[in-house]
């Protein structure tokens, strides 16, 4: 588990991309205050998922509007699934990994 940045870096309902050990991870801060972390690159055509719109359940890629379940990484529109990473906020810091 490692700290990747302050929680305040991510506005509510948005996502930001972090580089962790050479891996690109998109971290989203949901409007209920919780966080989710998934692979940052859309498996369809390489779109930046952190630029996508989210709700409490899904993220929608900005390029072709494919959608994935934020919790499981499962595709909701017939694309390959996304890798998901454990993530949480502790003391206003985003902690990634187990």
């Amino acid at each position: 588990m490692r700290a990747i940045g302050p929680a305040a870096e991510i506005p509510p309902g948005e996502g930001r991309t972090y580089t962790v050990d050479g891996e690109m991870v998109a971290v989203f801060r949901l409007r209920d205050g919780s966080v989710r972390a998934l692979q940052a690159v859309c498996p369809h055509k390489g779109g930046p998922l952190a630029d996508g719109q989210i709700d409490l359940k899904q993220v929608v890629c900005p390029l072709h509007l494919n959608a994935w379940d934020l919790r499981t990484g499962c595709s909701l529109s017939g694309q390959p699934d996304l890798a998901v990473y454990p993530v949480r906020i502790d003391d206003d810091t985003i902690l990634l990994g187990d």
């Binding site: 991309t17 050479g22 930046p48």
Partner: peptide, 16 residues
């Protein structure tokens, strides 16, 4: 307007 409004979301490698 927000923190990191213009921060890149670009992955490093795999983009077309």
């Amino acid at each position: 307007a927000t923190p990191g409004q213009f921060r890149t979301s670009l992955p490093l490698t795999v983009l077309p």
